[in-house]
Design a protein around this nucleic acid. Structure first.
Lengths: 144, 144
DNA sequence: ATAATATACTACTAATGTCGTAGGAATAAT
DNA sequence: ATTATTCCTACGACATTAGTAGTATATTAT
C-alpha cells in the first residue's frame, strides 16, 4: 500500500499547474525546482499525464505545460488512477470469475470496502479544492 | 496501491484459523489446500504472523497453527499492518520533519485523508466479524 | 527405538516494477 | 543561428515479490 513517487510527484506537478492557471505555460524545470523533483523524471511523468489528457504542452522556447481542463473538472481519482493504476487492485474485486470463491469470499468483500473508501476520498476532491486549500494555508501564514 | 499476495494469503490463512477456533491446531497443508496457496510460501507467512503474536504453533505430528487470541480481539488492521506495512506509506505523513513543506502541503493532507479512510475500515473489522459474515453466506447458500 | 508427521529456518532465484539517468531529436522564439 | 524548451527512447541500479528447495528440529504413533 505504498504510494509510488510517480503518483506523488505527478499530483504535485498537477497542483503546480492548477495554481498557474491563466498565466500561460509553466516550464518543467520550474515545476521540478519548486517540487524538488528530477527534471528528467518529471519529463516522463508529464508524458503520461499528457497522453491521458490531463495536461497539454507548448513546445519550444517560452513553452511549457498547462492543465487541459479547468481545475474543478479534474478529480484526484482520475489522476491517481492514471499514475498509480486501479485503486487497491485485487483481481477478484473486478472480475467475479477470477476465483471460484468470489461470491462468498469475505476477504473479497473487505478489499471491495477498502477500494470504495479510497475511491470515495479521491473522487470527492478536485484540483480546485486543493488550490483553495493552499490559499487558506497561505492566509494562515500571513496572520502569523 | 496493489495488495501483495502476502497480505491477501496471510489474511485468508488467519480466517481459516479463526473458523477453526476450538478444534485444536490446523495444519499448514490443510490451509494451503483450502486456500490454494503454496505450502512453502504459506510457511513463511505463518512465521511472520507468529513472530507478530497473532498465531501460535504446535510442532510435530498432529501439530499445526491456531490463533493466539480470540477472533474478536484481532483487528484486520493489525494483521494488515504486519503483512503489508503501514497503510498508505508516504514518509511525510508520519514524520513532520521529513519535508520542509509538510505544514502547508495539501498533497500531504490528501495522503493523510486516504490513510485515515483505509485505517477506519480495517480497524472496524475483527476476524470474528469475518467468521460471522462467512456463516451468513453459507446460510444463503443453503436457501438456494 | 524408529518412522512418520509437522513446524522452523535459511538460502536461493526468476520476474517484475520503481526511480531514476543519459542522450539526442524536434520545435519554437529571439 | 542560437537558445530554450518539449519529446522520445533506451538503459541501469536497486528493491520487492512470490515463490522453490533443502535441511533441521520437535512431537506423536507404532
Amino acid at each position: 500500500m505504498r504510494l509510488s513517487t510517480r503518483t506523488r510527484y505527478g499530483i504535485r506537478a498537477m497542483l503546480e499547474l492548477a495554481e498557474n492557471v491563466g498565466r500561460g505555460p509553466l516550464q518543467l524545470k520550474i515545476i521540478a525546482r519548486r517540487q524538488d523533483i528530477s527534471v528528467k523524471y518529471l519529463d516522463q511523468l508529464m508524458a503520461i499525464l499528457k497522453s491521458a489528457g490531463f495536461v497539454r504542452s507548448v513546445r519550444g522556447s517560452k513553452g511549457g505545460y498547462m492543465l487541459a481542463k479547468a481545475p474543478e473538472q479534474i478529480k484526484l481519482s482520475d489522476v491517481f488512477n492514471c499514475l498509480e493504476g486501479p485503486v487497491v487492485t485485487v483481481e477478484c474485486t473486478e472480475n467475479e470469475n477470477y476465483c471460484a470463491r468470489s461470491a462468498d469470499c469475505v476477504a473479497r468483500q473487505v478489499w471491495t470496502q477498502l477500494q470504495e473508501a479510497v475511491t470515495a476520498v479521491l473522487q470527492s476532491i478536485t484540483f480546485k479544492d486543493l488550490v483553495d486549500r493552499t490559499k487558506n494555508n497561505k492566509t494562515v501564514d500571513y496572520q502569523i
